[in-house]
């Protein structure tokens, strides 16, 4: 769409810019939370995991704030066109971001559980999956903020990679459980972590789809449901 002209009403322009910045900040926060929670697993650091849960409360507060900002702009400014699409997508994106935040907190919960239990001798690598999801989320957010359709399409494609890596991890964990039943409890925790990361990847994909809708004005979700 290129560089848009500025709004005639500069206070409106400023409100939209502030909202855009806030959504970007929320994206960065949950991305950080996923990274920290995963590191807490790898480093067996319960304190670090605890910090993720504190962070989640901040993210929740940010979601409420963004909701309010959107409602206020809808009521007072009656946005139309791309502004309207931006507000409605922002309202949906924060739900996905908040869910990712929750998933990060859940991962942190497992990290505390694992930190309290004796370490596994050869823990499977969840860090790789986590990095993939973080990159997916970060790029989806950039696509949203910059209305970059090409980037968003790329992110949507990456979901297959995440799914494949998750399946690989799942099978690996299953194999380890069958090898030694004493590790089942800890391996189950890791299985949950992998599942949470895979879900976080799905939410990142949603963000990418919203970014496409925002930029193009067409809904790319559920292609078959449209007559």
């Amino acid at each position: 769409m290129g560089m848009m002209r500025r709004h005639t009403d500069r206070s409106y322009e400023a409100e939209l810019a502030a909202l855009r910045e806030k959504v970007a900040r929320m994206g960065a926060r949950v991305e950080g939370a996923v990274a920290t929670a995963t590191r807490a697993i790898v480093q067996r650091d319960a304190a670090m995991a605890e910090s993720v849960r504190v962070e989640d409360r901040l993210v929740n507060r940010l979601e409420v704030e963004i909701d309010e900002d959107c409602r206020r702009i809808l009521a007072l400014r009656q946005p139309a066109g791309s502004d309207l699409r931006f507000i409605t997508t922002a309202l949906k994106i924060v739900v996905d971001l908040e869910r990712i935040g929750d998933l990060a907190a859940n991962i942190a919960g497992r990290a505390i559980e694992l930190a309290e239990a004796p370490p596994l001798l050869s823990p499977p690598d969840v860090g790789r999956l986590s990095e993939l999801v973080q990159a997916q989320l970060s790029r989806a957010m950039r696509a949203f903020v910059d209305s970059d359709v090409a980037l968003a399409e790329e992110v949507k494609g990456e979901d297959d990679l995440v799914d494949a890596l998750y399946m690989k991890l799942f099978n690996q964990l299953l194999g380890l459980m069958m090898e030694d039943s004493r590790n089942i409890r800890r391996l189950t925790a890791l299985m949950f972590v992998a599942k949470h990361l895979e879900r976080a990847g799905d939410h990142a994909t949603n963000v990418a789809e919203m970014a496409i809708y925002l930029a193009r004005g067409t809904d790319v979700r559920h292609p078959r449901s449209r007559a």
Binding site: T8, A80, G81
Partner: peptide, 19 residues
């Protein structure tokens, strides 16, 4: 026209980015 205008001029007008 009000959610997804085809023309950039329309977009600028309905969103208040004009003149």
């Amino acid at each position: 026209l009000f959610t997804n205008p085809r023309e950039e001029r329309t977009e600028e007008y309905v969103t208040g980015r004009f003149g």
